[in-house]
């Protein structure tokens, strides 16, 4: 990589940061409890819209991992999500009516909040339907992982998005508030992921899983990206470029080993395919606020209306992180 392209990336980073700075005006504070944040605490950042039914389990899950404070942007919910979140003692909430798409799918908003409140903290950026699993997550709190990453001078930790789905149609069993979504959707694809390198940003581009298999098998290049780097020791100079898929400076994207070894990594279990999905797809089609002209949702809708069953006889049923490790979806690296 030449000096020129390095400089262009630097400019791009500055541009994204400035954009986030501009977009801060769109955020309106509902409750701000950030004074309670103490040094060394792990913070979670999220954007959401109409996720009321998912929130109780989401908060419970991440509290039990050891998240101390949730910083959430509510994109104009009208199902009570805002009121519910505002009442939580460890949540700071902002709300906005502005366009999700024009904030680059929430990235600008969160980049701003992270640069303001996340500097020097380990920050986890996830959607309300993403559940972080890392090596030893059943016996060691998240703090153990971040302490180890600190000791190893590692600044970012990757977690591939793993789409989970039920057996049978999505709406066979409705999701109840507070329920573990993976009781309903415990299946995943274990070995059909396509990996290639993005030389510009230095990250890996991973596609595959049930979405590629069912909805994008004839246009795989349009299948959604599954590579994510949600856990970062944040510095205000950093910025997410596109969702949590990649960051700048690009050194943060090097979460994989190039010389044959395995670095430690985790997974984000993606509880997207529940009964709420059809509704969501319909709504998003109306709003046209999603990535690439909602191409993804259009493909799903075509699939959903014919009642797809993502399950096949090779689907694996989720047990725990060790299973994902053995299947080669994540790795302990040298953490033992």
């Amino acid at each position: 990589m030449g000096i020129f392209s390095q400089y262009m990336l630097r400019l791009a980073r500055k541009r994204w940061r400035f954009r986030a700075f501009r977009k801060r005006r769109e955020l309106q504070s509902v409750v701000n409890r950030t004074k309670a944040i103490k040094p060394e605490q792990i913070l979670l950042f999220s954007t959401l819209r109409n996720e009321r039914v998912r929130l109780p389990f989401f908060l419970r899950y991440y509290r039990s991992l050891g998240i101390s404070h949730f910083l959430i942007v509510d994109n104009n919910s009208d199902d009570g999500s805002r009121e519910y979140l505002a009442a939580q003692p460890d949540v700071s909430l902002w709300t906005t009516k502005a366009s999700y798409k024009r904030s680059r799918f929430g990235v600008d908003w969160l980049n701003w909040l992270q640069s303001k409140y996340g500097h020097g903290h380990w920050t986890l950026v996830v959607d309300p339907d993403e559940f972080f699993v890392y090596p030893f997550s059943d016996t060691r709190p998240l703090r153990a992982l971040t302490d180890w990453l600190d000791a190893s001078s590692i600044k970012s930790f990757s977690a591939m998005l793993l789409d989970m789905y039920p057996k049978g149609p999505f709406d066979l069993t409705p999701y109840q508030e507070g329920q573990d979504p993976f009781d309903l959707a415990p299946y995943f694809d274990s070995g059909n992921y396509v990996v290639q390198r993005n030389y510009k940003f230095g990250n890996l581009w991973i596609q595959g899983g049930p979405r590629m298999r069912m909805f994008f098998q004839d246009m795989p290049e349009r299948a959604p990206a599954l590579n994510k780097i949600p856990l970062v020791k944040w510095d205000r100079a950093y910025t997410y470029v596109s969702s949590t898929h990649m960051l700048l400076p690009r050194g943060l994207n090097l979460t994989y080993d190039e010389w044959g070894g395995e670095k430690a990594s985790g997974c984000l279990l993606h509880a997207k395919f529940l009964d709420t999905f059809a509704l969501k797809a319909e709504e998003e089609m109306q709003r046209r606020q999603h990535y690439a002209n909602s191409h993804e949702y259009r493909a799903y809708r075509a699939g959903v209306s014919t009642q797809p069953d993502l399950w096949c006889k090779w689907s694996e049923k989720y047990i725990n992180w060790r299973q994902l490790e053995i299947l080669g979806l994540m790795s302990k690296g040298n953490w033992a």
Binding site: A159, L204, Y256, D257, G261, S331, A336
Partner: peptide, 22 residues
Amino acid sequence: AKAVERRTKGRPGLYMQSRHPN
């Protein structure tokens, strides 16, 4: 020793998010 081997040599034939050898 196993952990170190996993970190330096990895599992042969595996290509994934944290192992993408040149």
